[in-house]
């Protein structure tokens, strides 16, 4: 997969992916979006009306990402982070522009997650990373019976207009969950977040309502929104 990795700082890097052969895809079927390998996605997102909550579901018989990332500079940039496995995700991203973020945010087991214009009971496999006034970030684990372990690059799906003018990003584990023994080590390590700037993973609650508005929202995200969000995710105290 042709890809150009550029590290800008210890916490921010860019990845430009061209071509889409064998990549992770986003397949649409009406209100449903399937994320993962073609035919065997890992997650299904239900695209709601703007007043309601996005649904996130595990798919049966998923094909998790495997293998590594052949980019030596990239692997070196990840060293010391929580992403000890599942690096094959970065090698399988669909064509687009991405910002890679090393983040010291911690997953929080809050009671409710904002999943659109609705607060829903947090599933055990979900957690909140950030709850700012204009940016909400949730993360979802690959295993349905336990919290996300986060020891892998997390695939982001920005959701523009998640709730009125508020933007959301949902991150997903695309590799099998880590063992309980490994969980204890993750706390102090940086998370590795893959934030799409351009590409099929950039979603918009208002997309089905107005094609023109959708294009404008995508342009604004590519120009400013993605980097602002990435800086927010990468911030240090």
């Amino acid at each position: 997969m042709p890809a150009l990795f550029t590290a800008y700082s210890e916490t921010l890097a860019e990845l430009r992916v061209t071509g889409d052969e064998g990549s992770i895809t986003v397949r649409r079927d009406g209100d449903l979006l399937y994320i993962g390998e073609p035919g065997r996605p890992v997650f299904c997102l239900e695209h709601p009306d703007p007043d309601d909550a996005w649904g996130v579901y595990h798919e049966e018989n998923p094909r998790f990402v495997a293998g590594g990332w052949p980019d030596e500079a990239g692997v070196a940039w990840l060293k010391g982070s929580a992403a000890r496995r599942g690096l094959g995700l970065i090698d399988r991203l669909p064509a687009g522009d991405y910002i890679l973020v090393r983040s010291d945010l911690k997953a929080r087991a809050v009671q409710h997650l904002l999943m659109g214009n609705e607060l829903v009971e947090r599933p055990i496999w979900g957690a909140q990373l950030l709850a700012d006034a204009d940016l909400r970030v949730n993360v979802f684990g690959a295993a349905a019976d336990r919290p996300p372990t986060l020891q892998q690059p997390l695939l982001g799906a920005p959701i523009l207009n998640l709730a009125n003018r508020l933007t959301g990003i949902f991150f997903f584990e695309m590799a099998p969950a880590a063992t309980p023994e490994a969980e204890a080590r993750v706390e102090a390590d940086d998370l590795v977040l893959v934030v799409p700037r351009v590409g099929p993973l950039v979603l918009n609650t208002m997309e089905p309502f107005s094609a023109d508005r959708h294009r404008i929202a995508l342009d604004e995200w590519a120009r400013d929104g993605a980097s602002q969000a990435a800086n927010r995710l990468a911030r240090r105290p």
Binding site: D31, E46, D49, G55, Y57
Partner: peptide, 13 residues
């Protein structure tokens, strides 16, 4: 009439 993924049917509101 549309059955959603979670089995709910959308209602008017």
């Amino acid at each position: 009439v549309t059955v959603k993924k979670n089995g709910d049917r959308p209602v008017g509101h």
